[in-house]
Design a protein around this nucleic acid. Structure first.
Lengths: 236, 236
DNA sequence: CAGTGGTCTAGACCACTGA
DNA sequence: CAGTGGTCTAGACCACTGT
């Protein structure tokens, strides 16, 4: 058991910061038992609900574990998570102070290839729209996009004009929120990628794949290839 | 403005789920103004604090935006975030049902190269421990680790035995919590990487770089190279 | 069964900010 | 300046779970 120093009329943020600093400095070490909420409320001279919020957020942030009856402990192993902003290419580019340009390379309605039908669980009669697009930063190739849209779910995509608006931005306006699976990997540039990104064939390319569903129906899947040297960074 | 259906004695989870389903189904569309907390509290027949918690969490989850005086709106563009579990290689491998094996390849205390001193803001007199390690899944190369540990901050690393315990697990036991910067990219295998991972030179390799600090002092930096074909996946 | 966190309430005051 | 969310309070009851 740990004893807490006395602090006057603390807000939940004060309490959270105070407890966190004790953990980060190693004053409260992994595995040790923290005072219970009532005790902390006395020491910080506030209501238990205020302490509760501070502790709840520390638990959400992965710093402590809480159990009824057993109390709250500093986590033993930092079960840490990293959060990434889902890359929205236009914003990504503009935030780097560069000028964004978009171009449609190809657009074709077709029957989905087998691998796509399998991945998106499409019916045998489904039709899809296949788009190829380029995103430029200050005129230089930044990202190549290979997009498939489920025409059964979004027939209006057939008549949409993708020469000026990118499929991502169009989709956001059509499907409010959706579930998605996203994965990152490294791949070698094939002829098409090399041509569009202006890099050698077999150059290592950072690849993002994302499939999204709306109420259990496949909306779209996309592969994004980034120019060589691209990095995705975050802090935690 | 949107009107809410009446629900009896709802908990904050009920309210959150109800509002979220209206957003996901497109009943409440992006940009539209939600009822204020007092109105929702009446409709759900609960206290305002209960509504507040539901709405606060929806905002944290990125579904709505809240502003004083202006009210709460469904987000226009899904500023969604993806959470990744920080890859802990042993768990990653064992969760795939494979057997984990670790091996120390090389260990050497030395003066940090310039790029490392710059990256970690080390003093001129700093010493570092340079480790090279391999992680195997079912006997096959899985990940090559190139690790640098700040000996000024962690002198005990000099005497630690890294032949049986990986540096990551050792560090976790020495430094309770730390800030980190992590980045992902694609790179081409050099001779060393190719040898250790058993892949061709110039093969595209998924690279993770992570630097961590403890109270503003650099603890360690590491580069991890994954076997060809490695994917990092999440849902959101 | 008893101790702990989880949640709700009714009310209050405050901070911010759009009109 | 008035409407909205942000936070706090003092108290209450409940759910879970270790002992």
């Amino acid at each position: 058991m740990i004893s807490a120093g006395r602090v006057l009329k603390a807000t939940y943020k004060d309490i959270k910061a105070d407890i966190l600093s004790k953990i980060l400095q190693g004053i409260w070490t992994p595995g040790s038992l923290l005072p219970n909420e009532v005790a902390l409320a006395e020491r910080y001279e506030c209501a238990r609900a205020t302490v509760n919020r501070a502790m709840r957020e520390l638990a959400e942030d992965g710093f402590i574990e809480r159990k009824r009856k057993a109390g709250s402990r500093v986590r033993l192993s930092p079960v840490r998570q990293a959060k990434f902003d889902i890359p929205i290419v236009r914003r990504e580019i503009e935030e780097h102070g560069a000028q964004y340009r978009y171009a449609l390379v190809q657009s074709e309605a077709c029957v989905p290839p087998d691998w796509l039908r399998a991945r998106l669980q499409l019916s045998n009669t489904a039709q899809v729209l296949h788009l190829t697009c380029m995103h430029y930063a200050d005129g230089a190739p930044y990202q190549l996009e290979d997009r498939w849209i489920n025409l059964t779910l979004l027939p209006q995509a057939r008549d949409a004009d993708f020469t000026t608006v990118g499929p991502n931005e169009w989709l956001v306006s059509q499907v409010p929120f959706s579930n998605a699976e996203i994965s990152f990997s490294a791949t070698a540039a094939d002829q098409t990628i090399a041509d569009h990104l202006g890099c050698p064939i077999d150059a290592p390319v950072f690849q993002v794949e994302r499939s999204t569903w709306w109420t259990d129906q496949a909306v779209t899947t996309v592969r994004l290839w980034h120019r060589p040297g691209h990095r995705m960074t975050t802090r935690y």
